[in-house]
Nucleic acid binder design. Sequence first.
DNA 1: AAGGGCAACAACCGCCACCTT
DNA 2: CAAGGTGGCGGTTGTTGCCCT
Length: 238
Amino acid sequence: MTRSLRVDKNGLRKGPWNKEEDDKLRAYIKRYGHWNWREIPRFAGVSRCGKSCRLRWMNYLRPDIKHGNFTKEEDDLIMKMHNKIGNKWAKIAAELPGRSDNEIKNYWNTNLKKQAKIDQNYPKNMHLETKNQSNFTNSLVESSGLGDNNEVEALWASLSSSEVSFASTHEYPYVTISSPSSSQTCSNDYDDGNFWTDPFFADLDVMVNNVVMAPSDSDEFMWSTMELYSQYHSKFMI
DNA sequence: AAGGGCAACAACCGCCACCTT
DNA sequence: CAAGGTGGCGGTTGTTGCCCT
């Protein structure tokens, strides 16, 4: 399941590692540590680039690395964190001792992504305009961070053209917002703003008080919008 | 048995942030 | 402050194995 072995123009091997290379690298790092990845292959006696050595060590040779099937607990944690922070594999890996970011990324792409897609269709989609907007915006003014009813109404109106769905997967609620060319999912227990990504915002052209907001550059906008959806979720969904 | 399609995953590549000089 | 080096990250690719027809 790996690439075929080849040698590049500098004489460096590419492709699958053999046992001898693994043993040399493992032995060297065990004894001297990894002080400089670019120099390590020369000292360890392997014809690989430093980057390749680092990858091999981090994903396979580290003594604390765990191989084998993911547990249900690990699945849940990956799903939860992915809902929350998106494709931040290194951050997710930091919460899963013994798992590498590469392994988690592969696992997500081959297993969990499909599961997540299925979950997002549950329980149903709905359109914002079907709800009682005025009552809701009144209750939002204070908590949303927006200035007054007009601002909330304006934001609301501009978002109404997008399809918004609310759903829960396991114990982690999330909100999915679909626009014509992209979709974005985020968790309600937000404490990290990075899950709002540019493609979604770039597509929305949100107007507040006749000013086009630049969402990807505006933390205030981000928090306000998140609060809006969070409040909406808790108010109308059981 | 053959082969086509898909899944799995190790490894590569390009980009970026950070550090050092 | 700028430039170059390095490590880390995330997206993507390439190959093998498995399953289905």
